[in-house]
């Protein structure tokens, strides 16, 4: 297995304030390897402020890590020579959250799709460019004749988001970073977008880093999941194991708060501890302030990852009896 994109002990710290340097740890010692032998969809989930967008920005090379390094095909992203960096830009594509903000309203869809073709010199012939666009649009379930020649404002949110996916697909990427691709889209259209993302993996062998706060869609689309809370990994592993039988109290809370469209599953069996805005601990487990099972030791030391199952680990002292798993080995759970 050859690593495609690797985050090696990456931390990102934002500091603010001129005199007193107040530091916010957006992402803390994160390691993850996405491998190119077998395409997979990895979901990164957590509430706002958990560092999931920071992680996508790091993976896309938009921001530089404070500690550690981001490697693309074994080379540090920030030390790539120009031609390789261009290749990285082509092979790692992004789909962003807001389909209403990503397109320039003055350009037609044709133009928006031609830009990447020209930029990366995919083809010189206009006819071929057209075929490529049509293929990409059909691949995401859009009818090219309905889309080409139109302006973004003439399309619905769901259509636009699929155009984002088509644009990424045009460049035949090896990795797609999808940052909340369905959160702004109507519930009835979500299914179609998720379907096209899944198709990318199946038909084109594209790995996807799926960043979301919505565990429902994460469960449906991904193979494995990493649950983040304030920059740290709380639980990671196979998606079925994690969602159906969560171990970490935070994951339990998250899953318990999903409003399932099912009359049999009622809301709110675990109690909500502490209101938002009241949890600030400096040492120990980040979740200690809100955790219903908090022990004295949680407030002193940061719990390491304990491997509770073959395909899952949770960072919680409740599972101390299980063997520890070094943070940089999360990938083992995911590729297993």
């Amino acid at each position: 297995m050859a690593p495609l994109l690797e985050l090696r002990n990456v931390s990102k710290i934002y500091s603010q304030g001129l005199l007193s340097r107040e530091q916010t740890i957006a992402l803390d010692n994160m390691s993850l390897v996405l491998d190119d032998s077998k395409p997979s969809i990895v979901a990164v989930a957590g509430e706002s402020g958990s560092g999931k967008t920071t992680m996508s920005m790091l993976a896309l090379g938009f921001i530089e890590p404070t500690k550690g390094e981001v490697l693309y095909k074994g080379k540090n992203l920030y030390k790539l020579p120009a031609n390789e960096h261009l290749k990285f830009r082509r092979e790692v594509q992004a789909v962003f959250q807001d389909p209403f903000a990503v397109f320039n309203p003055f350009y037609t869809i044709d133009h928006l799709l031609t830009v990447p073709i020209d930029k990366f010199k995919l083809t010189k012939s206009k006819k071929q460019a057209r075929t490529m666009m049509e293929d990409a649009l059909s691949a995401v379930g859009l009818r090219p004749d309905e889309i080409l020649g139109r302006f973004p404002h003439q399309l619905s949110g769901g259509q636009r988001q699929r155009i984002s996916v088509a644009r990424a697909l045009l460049l035949k990427p090896t990795l797609l970073v999808a940052d909340e691709p369905v959160s702004m889209v109507d519930a009835s259209l979500r299914a179609t977008i998720l379907e096209s993302l899944k198709k990318l993996k199946k038909d084109y062998g594209i790995s996807i880093l799926y960043i979301t706060h919505d565990l429902t869609t994460a469960y449906h689309i991904s193979d494995s999941i990493i649950v983040l809370y304030r920059g740290g990994v709380m639980e990671a592993g196979d998606v079925d194991t994690v969602i159906k039988n969560p171990k970490h109290p935070y994951t339990k809370l998250l899953i318990d708060s999903i409003p399932w469209p099912d009359l049999k599953l009622r809301w709110g069996t675990t109690d909500l501890q502490a209101k938002e805005g009241e949890y600030k601990s400096t040492t120990g487990c980040r979740f200690a302030g809100r955790c219903p099972f908090v022990m004295p030791k949680c407030k002193e030391t940061v719990p390491p990852l304990f491997q509770t199952d073959k395909t899952r680990a949770a960072a919680c002292f409740l599972y101390e009896e299980n063997p520890q798993l070094a943070r940089q080995n999360i990938t083992e759970l995911i590729s297993a």
């Binding site: 519930a187 009835s188 259209l189 299914a191 379907e195 899944k198 449906h220 689309i221 599953l265």
Partner: peptide, 28 residues
Amino acid sequence: FTNPMHPYAKALIASLPNLDNKGVFRGI
């Protein structure tokens, strides 16, 4: 949720993801 009458309501209910139908996406 148990017996939607209008076809649109039915499609809406059917498009919902839940724990039992992993990976099945049924858009309208």
